[in-house]
Design a protein around this nucleic acid. Structure first.
Lengths: 195, 195
DNA sequence: ACAGGAGTAGACCGATCTGTCTACTATGCG
DNA sequence: CGCATAGTAGACAGATCGGTCTACTCCTGT
């Protein structure tokens, strides 16, 4: 990846994430990044392709961050707690590499490009699927019954997305903690059923 | 409320909801609604005030719909099931008055006006609080212990928002059903602890 | 009768948008 | 050397944006 290209993507993400895609013009990205307009259109065919590159950039950054956080947790229920502890750090701006919290970038972009067959919307969908897969692999270390693996993964994804929404729309800085409590309660219930 | 004013609000909502606020211009709303520009600026000081009125409109419509659906359910666990059955109908376009599903309008607007001190963002926040209060009153009919009322209300709100996100971003038409199963499982766990 | 409020149609304004283009520079490679 | 590549600065084009304004019509209440 070219130096200028990366610079554009990073600057564009920062602006898109805090103001929204439609609210940020090409010229603002250019002046903020100090890159010439011709260079932008050399690397990208247009704004949509830039947004697409920004989505891929954030997808990688976020995925890598979450994966490393989950890898740190010891296998077992701590994986579940670790997921929501990570979210808690994110919501409360304790993760520099994710930038100050403004909700989930992919939910935000989906809101602006709402049609399901829109390319950008589909990229957002794929990100969510990748993260869900990451969570699924954690749940699989929990020695639940196969049917419960599916159900509990679904529950964790629901609670995670719910927490993101609460934290962003309502500014509920405790959203991740609440979700954690609920998730652990569910896990407890799952175990007691089995024993 | 004047006839033309209502017409503007309804048309604006339809367009904002399916395309996003920034993506829809004043002129599109005017030509779609067949109202003159001067009339719009007679009723509203500007676009922001129109958006604000649209938010209030949707808040009332949504709140009334959900309340009537919850009132229909028989008191007890059926209230919880009824909540997610209502969401399921919404997600799958079986509720005409809510228009075809494009996620939660308030989450979408929050994404476009991301700063917490933005007026429109705050209106979205208030809507969520109103709905949360509605859910809380249902939970209070469940004869749980006081501490559990809070926790279970939080859990239901998290699952509800999570289901909305899954349904919109990932197009998961079963999101409400999954959330319902999780909620009932939680409720079951709560009861078994108490008995 | 008539004043004023609500409405229409649409020209117009300045700003801003995405995207193109010209002219020029620096660098690295065969 | 010669030439393509990546870059800068910025004028420019055409469209669209939110918002103002003029000129006119219709209706209603005093």
């Amino acid at each position: 990846m070219s130096d200028k290209r990366l610079q554009l993507v990073i600057t564009a993400f920062k602006l898109f994430y805090s103001k929204g895609v439609h609210a940020v013009g090409i010229n603002e990205i250019l002046s903020e990044s100090g890159v010439a307009k011709k260079t932008l259109y050399h690397h990208f065919s247009g704004k949509e392709e830039l947004v697409s590159a920004v989505l891929e950039f954030r997808d990688q950054r976020f995925h890598n961050w979450l994966k490393s956080r989950l890898d740190q947790a010891t296998p077992g229920p701590d994986k579940v707690g670790g997921l929501f502890d990570a979210l808690d750090d994110w919501f409360n701006d304790r993760v520099d590499e994710l930038l100050p919290f403004h909700g989930c970038f992919f939910i935000n972009v989906s809101a602006e490009f709402s049609e399901p067959n829109n390319l950008l919307h589909q990229l957002c969908c794929r990100h969510k699927e990748r993260v869900a897969q990451l969570i699924r692999t954690q749940v699989e270390t929990l020695d639940l019954e196969p049917v419960e693996v599916n159900a509990f993964t679904n529950a964790l994804c629901l609670l995670k997305e719910g927490a993101v929404s609460l934290a962003h729309v309502q500014g509920d800085r405790l959203a991740a903690i609440k979700a954690k409590a609920t998730a652990l309660q569910l896990l407890q219930g799952n175990k007691s059923v089995r024993s």
